[in-house]
Simulated assay, not measured.
Amino acid sequence: MSIPERRVGIVLVSHSDALAREAAALVRQIAGAHARVAPAGGTDEGGCGTSADKIAAAVEEVDQGAGVVLIPDLGSSVLTARLFEEPGSVVIADVPFVEGAISAAVLAATGAPLADVLAAAQEARTYRKL
């Protein structure tokens, strides 16, 4: 089975640039080379918070025409991410940050459609560690 060239992209929206970058690196290591993952963390000035400009750039980076899943970490990152919602094109996943990102990216790397990638991320809400 061949993997489609256009895959769903994943954007990790965090209050922390370092957290977003490191989480994206972890997700890429687990999901593999076909995963389209970009971090969007911190403010434009390098502080704690979120940036619409960083989210826009990350969406543009990973968008291959198959859709984008935004995964915010908490609080106001959700509000900022909502500025980019476009049903059927850019969606927000209300999921645990790391587990949801990994689940979404692993399935997205296979070429699965946006609805399936979002559902995979949402399944992470039920994962138990013990």
Rank of each mutant, 00 (worst) to 15 (best):
residue 123 E to Y: 06
residue 13 V to H: 06
residue 95 V to I: 09
residue 114 L to R: 10
residue 48 C to W: 14
residue 13 V to W: 03
residue 128 R to Q: 13
residue 122 Q to Y: 00
residue 13 V to E: 05
residue 50 T to H: 00
residue 2 S to E: 09
residue 35 A to V: 03
residue 75 G to Q: 00
residue 123 E to H: 10
residue 122 Q to G: 00
residue 5 E to H: 05
residue 108 A to I: 07
residue 52 A to N: 13
residue 59 V to W: 03
residue 3 I to P: 05
residue 10 I to D: 14
residue 88 G to M: 07
residue 44 D to G: 12
residue 5 E to T: 09
residue 119 A to R: 14
residue 76 S to D: 14
residue 108 A to L: 10
residue 78 V to F: 15
residue 69 V to F: 02
residue 8 V to N: 12
residue 108 A to G: 10
residue 117 V to A: 09
residue 64 Q to V: 03
residue 29 Q to V: 00
residue 97 F to Q: 07
residue 17 D to T: 11
residue 77 S to Y: 07
residue 110 T to Y: 08
residue 14 S to F: 04
residue 79 L to Y: 07
residue 23 A to H: 08
residue 2 S to N: 06
residue 64 Q to N: 03
residue 7 R to W: 02
residue 50 T to P: 05
residue 121 A to L: 07
residue 34 H to Y: 15
residue 37 V to G: 12
residue 121 A to N: 01
residue 1 M to F: 06
residue 103 S to P: 00
residue 55 I to C: 01
residue 18 A to E: 14
residue 24 A to V: 08
residue 20 A to M: 13
residue 126 T to V: 02
residue 27 V to K: 08
residue 106 V to N: 02
residue 59 V to L: 12
residue 105 A to C: 05
residue 73 D to H: 03
residue 124 A to L: 13
residue 2 S to H: 11
residue 84 F to M: 04
residue 76 S to H: 08
residue 59 V to T: 11
residue 95 V to A: 13
residue 92 I to H: 01
residue 53 D to L: 12
residue 86 E to M: 07
residue 100 G to S: 04
residue 54 K to N: 10
residue 15 H to S: 09
residue 44 D to Q: 10
residue 120 A to G: 06
residue 61 E to A: 15
